[in-house]
Write a protein that binds this DNA or RNA. Structure first.
Length: 943
RNA sequence: GCGGGGGUCGCCCAGCCUGGUCAACGGCGCGAGGCUUAGGACCUCGUCCCUUAGGGGUUCGUGGGUUCGAAUCCCACCCCCCGCACCA
């Protein structure tokens, strides 16, 4: 870090510039960003999101708001613990990420086996990098989500939510990791992303007094069953399941037990023992042989399936394999198989009676090992589901479509009492910890009742009343609110706060961070040790946040003072509501909407959030940032490379709206260069100034600057950071360059004023260089505390703007001509329109404006020999707005302007320039062009 | 599949809400010139095609439509990105 950066950081800190307390009567602005999760180094994505609020905060501060921008750290959840765990298990990938991507010293990584240490390391590092970036955060309010006082806040929150009926209990099937003893979410899986529990139908085939329990997704095919498959190599068991005698694969026993079945194992044996026995099917009453099939996965469902070779390609091929002697199964098995043939049970357009065979033969599938069986299965299944109609072979199901037959078959089976159900993972799911997952029916889980229609309706209002930047994002909120279902809000493992009424459960990360912004008003007092966790009883918090209860008696009961409690209440009432919460768009479907839900539940309308800011995700050189791809850019790394101001400006110029922000090294270099060039540019420019009266060009600069202030202010107020920054650093800079380039010595006072204001406009984005410049320019106080430039200090001057505009048009026209005309060209004659032509022009304009007939006017000026069409074409060319401007400045002296600028034009074009006025006597007009001149469109002639 | 966003002149991107001043802002890249011992930085000009007088032609994913007039409004289609939940 450079010494000047250090210097200003110290000044801001010493003067407590960013430590706001309530000032009654002063307008306030409370802005927040979701706290980052402390399992890794903060990166440019975090920085991008946070920087938008940082810029906004500094901008609002200059506008005179009392701005609070607090920060905290998210430790809740199991990710930190999980990473620590993996490191402990010696996972080399985990270590590599810490060391190579995040740049953690080896010595520190050793200690990361302690999750708390891991989180505290990153917290410390992240805090430092944010401070070094000059973020205007009130660090007095910082906290971690595991702090005792914060836990009291979360406990209070959940007690109240439950009382309001928003926390309910439920029992649901979940993907379960037996090692973690916890549900395994998508991101926690090594294998099986996107797989969720599916309900299979279990059908009991009688095997003497035992039931061989087969699992299926297609119970309607039961009439087509020819045999039952088991895996001859797998282990099976006899067991009492809910008092019945079942035969299933041994591994299925665990899964059944997790699905609320009472399981008592009796004995286990190899699958081959079952081969050749006959099992009686329900409904049909047929005795079906048990045959071997190695495609049967004993770890899926019950490890037993029944075979429908006519309609299931796997079954068809497995049976054919045995018949063709491809399976070593002994003669007896083959003889049984030889007698079996597919039993068609439905008709399907475009297929024969045996669709499974059609698909298998079409694809040329050779045997059970062929991976294309998967595709064949899905093809047949889809076709049958949509177009299959059951035939007489299916008995009571005859005439039904597959879709209709499915529930009907279940109904029939239920009557036979030979039906059961089981949740199954249709594909392998492996937890990050390496263990195979299965479905568990998790009982009495706690849910946030987001499906509650009244709660939804109220939440919708929260969003309706708030600003959403950009507006495009609003619809997404509404759809999310509609779509959101009950959310499991507590888990068994990880860091966090226990549910106060059920200590087995820990409030989950997305659920403990919905109204914590309110806690920022309290954390200041906690950190200053004015109040401690013991004081924060639910009743006290009711008072602080709801104003309920009597502060005097509450104070007595928790041993603090009445005054203190009133102060907490005042602090909250002053800062709330949140004026802006900004985050990346991927948080709309969860965090931001949860945030809206909980505010709807807890607070009255006047304390609902006022604004949502949404930004895109960060890309690195056009590609998604990823630790494994090696294109990961940490905040620290970027800060060190480009400096605080350079980094900040690069972030500001990256993207607006929900567009993804493309972080490019090249652009960051550029930003850094711009920042560095500022001071020399300002210094050098000021040195070249002189003291003199204001001329038209000076007025032009001031007037243009007026417009720049306008666009910047408007953009900032709508959180269009890039637009604002581009105006300040690109447009304004270009304006000044043009002003210098345009000619003459710059006027000292004009530039001093413009620079003074310019610096204040830079201050939100690049505060360090702004402070330097502010000092350089003799500004009093700090640029971080100055006033945002006022429009009235930079008056508009349409006349001056008109002059530069016409000049630009003339130069452009002349360039076009020069481009096209070949031959000698040493002199450009510029003919400004005569007074007569000018009158003609304006009278036509007026007539057109009033939609009057123009005949009179045309006749009046017929001597000019200017076709009215030409004038109308010009009107069209310059546009209505410009025409109005021209019309309201009839006094504008085009001749004087262009005469004055002839030197400039000449320099620009590298040719001598003579400006004359049409109609003047002694006109040099060899091309006879002068008569064509019109206002804003002088005639040109090249010699 | 459902939901959200988007496809603009080599690349990135503005404009679209509130149709005409849009061959279309700005940046990058590229070309020419200036400055400089040289390079870099910086400054000026150029960068769809055609054109010996400021002009013309064809462009804003594709195809229709509305309109005197459409990148902008309407309809259909194609393509890309993101989210889809027990988790940050």
């Amino acid at each position: 870090m450079s010494s000047r950066e250090k210097y200003w950081l110290k000044v801001w800190s010493d003067r407590r510039v960013f430590e706001p307390d309530p000032i009654q009567g002063k307008k306030k602005m409370f802005v927040t960003v979701p706290f980052p999760y402390m399992n890794a180094a903060v990166h440019v994505g975090t920085a991008f999101t946070a920087a938008r609020v940082e810029f906004y905060a500094r901008f609002r501060r200059l506008q005179g708001y009392n701005v609070l921008f607090p920060w905290a750290w998210h430790w809740t959840g199991k990710t930190i613990v999980g990473m620590s765990q993996r490191l402990k298990q010696g996972d080399p990938a985990a270590r590599r990420t810490f060391v190579q991507v995040d740049g953690v010293p080896e010595k520190e990584v050793e200690k990361f086996t302690d999750p708390e240490y891991l989180a505290s390391y990153y917290t410390k590092a992240s805090r430092q990098v944010m401070k070094d970036s000059g973020f205007s955060i009130d660090w007095r309010r910082e906290f971690r989500t595991v702090d005792p006082a914060f836990r009291k806040f979360v406990e209070w929150q959940y007690l109240r939510l439950r009382e309001m009926g928003y926390v309910v209990q439920g029992t649901h099937p979940v993907v379960w990791c037996p090692f973690d003893k916890s549900p395994t979410g998508d991101h926690d899986r090594m294998e099986g992303e996107g797989v969720s529990p599916e309900e299979f139908t279990l059908i009991k085939f009688h095997l003497g007094e035992w039931a061989l329990v087969a699992a299926t997704l297609r119970p309607e095919t039961i009439y087509g069953a020819t045999n039952v498959w088991v895996n001859p190599d797998a282990e099976y068991s006899e067991a009492r399941v809910d008092g019945e005698l079942w035969v299933v694969s041994s591994s299925a026993l665990t899964r059944l037990a997790e699905q609320k079945h009472e399981v008592v194992p009796v004995r286990s044996f190899k699958g081959s023992e079952l081969l050749g026995r006959y099992a009686m099917a329900p409904l049909t009453g047929k005795a079906l042989p048990v045959l071997p099939a190695r495609f049967v996965d004993d770890s899926l469902a019950t490890g037993v399936v029944y075979s429908v070779p006519a309609h299931a390609p796997y079954d068809y091929v497995a049976l054919r394999d045995i018949q063709q002697g491809k399976v070593e199964s002994g003669r007896q098995i083959k003889e049984i198989a030889d007698k079996l043939a597919p039993i068609p049970i439905l008709t399907l357009k475009g297929y024969s009676q045996v669709p499974a065979r059609d698909a298998v033969e079409k694809m040329g599938i050779a045997d059970s090992a062929d991976p294309r069986l998967e595709a064949a299965t899905s093809e047949v299944y889809k076709a049958e589901f949509h177009g299959g109609v059951l035939t007489q072979a299916s008995g009571p199901l005859a005439g039904l479509t597959v879709a209709e037959a499915k529930p009907k078959s279940v109904e029939l089976l239920a009557k036979t009492e030979r039906l059961a159900r089981m949740f199954v993972l249709p594909e392998r799911v492996v937890c990050r910890c390496g263990n195979r997952c299965y479905v568990k029916i998790l009982e009495n889980q706690w849910f946030l009742n987001y499906s509650n229609p009244e709660w939804k309706a109220k939440t919708r209002q929260v969003v309706e009343k708030a600003d959403v930047f950009p507006e495009d994002a609003r619809q997404w909120f509404y759809s999310t609110i509609e779509w959101l279902n009950d959310w499991p809000c507590a888990r068994r493992s990880g860091m966090g706060t226990k549910l106060p009424w059920d200590k087995e459960w820990i409030v989950e990360t997305l659920s403990d961070s919905t109204i914590y912004m309110a806690y920022y008003t309290l954390s200041k007092f906690v950190n200053l040790e004015k109040i401690g966790p013991d004081h924060l009883t639910p009743e006290v918090l009711d008072y602080v946040f709801f104003g309920k209860g009597n502060p005097a008696s509450l104070a007595k009961s928790v041993k603090t003072t009445d005054k203190r409690l009133r102060q907490l209440r005042e602090e909250f009432m002053y800062w709330y509501p949140v004026d802006l919460r900004n985050s990346a768009k991927e948080l709309i479907p969860n965090h931001l909407t949860f945030f809206a839900f909980h505010h709807a539940a807890f607070f009255p309308e006047k304390q609902w959030p006022r604004g949502f800011g949404i930004n895109g995700m960060i890309l690195i050189e056009g590609k998604k940032m990823s630790k494994t791809k090696g294109n990961f850019v940490t905040w620290k790394g970027a800060l060190e490379k480009y400096g605080a101001d350079g980094f900040r400006l690069a972030l500001a110029l990256t993207a607006d709206g929900m567009d993804d922000a493309d972080w490019r090294g090249r652009a960051a270099e550029d930003a850094k260069g711009k920042v560095e060039a500022l001071i020399p540019f300002v210094k050098k420019t000021l040195k070249s100034t002189e003291v003199r009266p204001e001329n038209e060009l000076d007025s032009w600069l001031v007037s243009t600057f007026h417009r720049r202030i306008g666009t910047t202010t408007e953009a900032m107020e709508e959180l269009k950071i890039r637009r604002a920054a581009a105006t300040v650093y690109l447009d304004v800079w270009n304006d000044i360059r043009y002003y210098l380039h345009r000619g003459g010595k710059p006027r000292r006072q004009t530039l001093t004023e413009v620079f003074g204001a310019w610096v204040r406009m830079m201050s939100p984005f690049t505060p360090f260089v702004a402070e330097d410049l502010n000092r350089e320019l003799g500004g009093k106080g700090l640029a971080s505390q100055a006033d945002w430039p006022a429009l009235k200090d930079f008056p508009l001057d349409e006349g001056a703007e008109l002059a530069e505009w016409v000049l630009g048009r003339v130069t452009e026209d002349a360039r076009k001509v020069l481009n096209v005309v070949k031959g000698p060209r040493s002199k450009l004659n510029v003919y400004v329109s005569s007074d007569q032509a000018k009158n003609y022009f304006f009278e036509l304009a007026a007539a057109k404006q009033k939609k009057e007939s123009v005949g009179q006017v045309v006749k009046k000026y017929s001597s000019l020999k200017i076709q009215p069409d030409r004038v109308f074409k010009l009107f069209y060319e310059i546009g209505e707005e410009a025409l109005a401007k021209v019309a309201s400045h009839r006094g504008f002296d085009e001749f004087a302007t262009l005469s004055e600028a002839s030197g400039f034009i000449s320099k620009e074009l590298g040719i001598s320039v003579v400006v004359q006025k049409s109609g003047a006597s002694g006109l040099h007009d060899p091309g006879g062009k002068a008569k064509d001149a019109l206002p804003t469109k002088p005639a040109l002639y090249l010699e």
